[in-house]
């Protein structure tokens, strides 16, 4: 099922990337080219195959539940586009 302009608009919004209305048809056609390429996957019979969850068999390490750092608020905020009084600043979220 090819992707149309509405699908492209929906995906762009889900990805939180603004795309101008006039650019949507070109974007949809790019998606279709890439998804067409991906369609080859359908040729593979994957019945009874478990989807891969980890490329190397490994058991994730456990560690002691204790604080290992902190107290570096200044460093955390150092690269923020807008920070005031020890907080990140964003446009108003709740009216």
């Amino acid at each position: 099922m090819p992707i149309d302009r509405d699908d492209a608009r929906r995906v762009a919004h889900l990805a939180r990337i603004r795309v101008d209305e006039e650019d949507l048809p070109a974007l949809a056609s790019e998606f279709n080219a890439i998804l067409g390429f991906i369609e080859q996957l359908r040729e593979v019979d994957v019945r009874d195959v478990e989807p891969m969850t980890s490329v190397t068999p490994m058991r994730l390490k456990r560690r002691e539940d204790r604080i290992a750092g902190g107290g570096i608020a200044e460093k955390v905020l150092a690269n923020a586009p807008d920070a005031r009084e020890g907080y990140f600043v964003v446009p108003k979220v709740v009216e």
Partner: peptide, 24 residues
């Protein structure tokens, strides 16, 4: 955006899970 699409509701199994099986 392609990644968003293949993970989105309704396409997750058809694309993402299928690809993980092929990867196996």
């Amino acid at each position: 955006m392609i990644g968003t699409y293949v993970l989105s509701a309704g396409f997750y199994d058809a694309y993402y899970n299928h690809a993980r099986k092929v990867r196996a």
